[in-house]
């Protein structure tokens, strides 16, 4: 479960004293097994929020509890371990190691754990099967199509069986048909019990999520949150 209260984040632009208030007091609760879409204009603070949720960026003020743990108390090592075991990322640009093959890419999160090579192989195969690309396992990522790359990224995100999947415009670089297939994957992962947060510009993608949150100028403006 994700509980965020009055979260604030300010960036200072390098070389000048100018400050950007990326988040100006965000409150969100995401329960386990939810599938949430985050929408908003470019520059609204969506990626900043997702990166903070994913323990990639720090925040300046407010409170963030992840599964009951106060994130601000975590050391770098503990945060990394949580990121490794509880969180899977899927990004618009895939963030894969292009020069390596599919299997190596999917295996990466498992290298920071104490697993035998057999366990690693089993987990990788299971993840590849889950996204229907077990036949591509030895192909170099650079030679794959966008849709296939995104499947590799999803396989990598789920290989450690995390509870949360955070996706930043995962369909942004894909055509409508492929985008639909990727969303179907996310939905079936959600049915299996994963909590999913997806940032998207695409209303069709957002409509497939069970809840929508809109961010504007570092604040939540969706009706749901206003009603409270």
């Amino acid at each position: 479960m994700i509980e965020i209260r009055d979260l604030k984040k300010t960036y200072t632009i390098k070389g000048s004293k100018e400050k950007v208030n990326a988040l100006r007091g965000i409150d969100i609760t995401v329960n386990d097994r939810e599938m949430v879409a985050i929408q908003g204009r470019s520059g609204a603070g969506k990626s900043t929020l997702l990166n903070i949720i994913g323990l990639i960026e720090s925040y300046d003020d407010g409170e963030y509890m992840l599964n009951g743990i106060d994130v601000s108390t975590l050391s770098d090592g503990k945060a990394a371990k949580l990121r490794n075991q509880r969180i899977g990322f899927v990004l618009q640009d895939y963030s894969l190691l292009e020069k390596y093959n599919v299997k190596t890419n999917v295996m990466l999160p498992l290298l920071f754990d104490k697993l035998s090579s057999r366990e690693i192989d089993e987990k990788v195969n299971r993840a590849l099967e889950a996204v229907n690309i077990d036949d591509l396992s030895h192909r170099k990522v650079a030679h794959l199509s966008g849709g296939q790359k995104q499947r590799v990224a999803i396989a990598r995100a789920i290989v450690n069986d995390p509870s949360f999947i955070l996706a930043d415009e995962p369909t942004g670089a894909l055509d409508t048909k492929t985008s639909g297939e990727i969303m179907e994957l996310f939905r079936s992962l959600n049915d299996e019990g994963k909590t999913i947060i997806i940032i998207t510009h695409d209303p069709i993608v957002a409509d497939q999520c069970k809840r929508k949150i809109e961010i504007s100028d570092g604040r939540i403006v969706s009706p749901e949150q206003v009603e409270k």
């Binding site: 994913g54 990639i56 990394a80 371990k81 990121r83 990322f89 963030s95 999160p109 920071f112 450690n160």
Partner: peptide, 16 residues
């Protein structure tokens, strides 16, 4: 650099 950033996103601590 790119690989380091991806590795830390995937859960490698700074030390690792």
């Amino acid at each position: 650099r790119e690989q380091n950033v991806i590795l830390s996103m995937l859960g490698a601590s700074k030390r690792k």
